[in-house]
Write a protein that binds this DNA or RNA. Structure first.
Lengths: 118, 118
DNA sequence: TCAATACTTCAACAATAATGGAAATATGGA
DNA sequence: TCCATATTTCCATTATTGTTGAAGTATTGA
């Protein structure tokens, strides 16, 4: 099951977002932790913590390769997240490009005058 | 300036995501806090805290309307976020629908053998 | 002007997440 | 087998977030 908030929270951290982007750019073969560690100037423990987090929620995957490890982006998960954001969050209201200029055509336009006391 | 991680973090919370979705569904005219409070079963202080957060990062907007307030989704911000996620995160690697079935055609395929010591 | 309402800000506390050093684990080469 | 290397897990500490009652602010209607 996809827990959107969990994925969003995982990406909602400067460092993890940077890690994820590096992995996405790296393609399906991914990258080695020491490369990431160097690229981002992070101590290995901190990096490991964030890699574990991204891995746990399914945004990246870990491959053991003899003595080394490799992490790669899990594109399908990102797909699902984007699909969720467009369909469940914006579907029916179109917050995709153009939404701002094409305001609610199919909306009820309830124009309710005021709240009715809780 | 768009701080993607900030927006993602804002949406990366069950309650805030729920609030945001309600506002997106509500259309440009938005909703009154008491409606949201009731719909989500949240005490007004908690709701207010999360509304303030979403408002601060620019995902929703607040309109004062005489005695009442109204919050509405800021579609353009969501647009920008989705654009960022597709372009800067997945652009060039296509993690949009179909990515999983259409693996890296244009990728370097470096197949580097191992990391060179940090 | 006073009271009621709608909501916020304040403040205190609880819970959760992030950081990074030290120790543990695993692998491969000498 | 022993050592070096890569990376993790453990653990303590710090920092950040979330929750909610109480008090404050603004607006309208009586």
């Amino acid at each position: 099951m996809l827990l959107a908030a969990e994925l969003l929270a995982a990406l909602g951290h400067e460092t993890r977002l940077a890690i994820f982007r590096l992995l996405v750019e790296a393609g399906p073969q991914g990258r080695y932790p020491n490369e990431l560690s160097e690229a981002l100037g992070l101590p290995p423990t901190t990096l490991s913590f964030h890699l574990a987090h991204l891995n746990r929620v399914g945004l990246i995957r870990r491959h053991k390769e003899g003595r080394y490890l490799r992490y790669a982006a899990a594109y399908e998960t990102m797909d699902e997240l984007l699909a969720f954001l467009t369909q469940n969050c914006c579907g029916g209201v179109a917050c995709l490009s153009g939404a701002a200029t094409r305001p609610n055509e199919e909306l009820p336009q309830t124009t309710s005058p005021a709240p009715q006391g809780a």
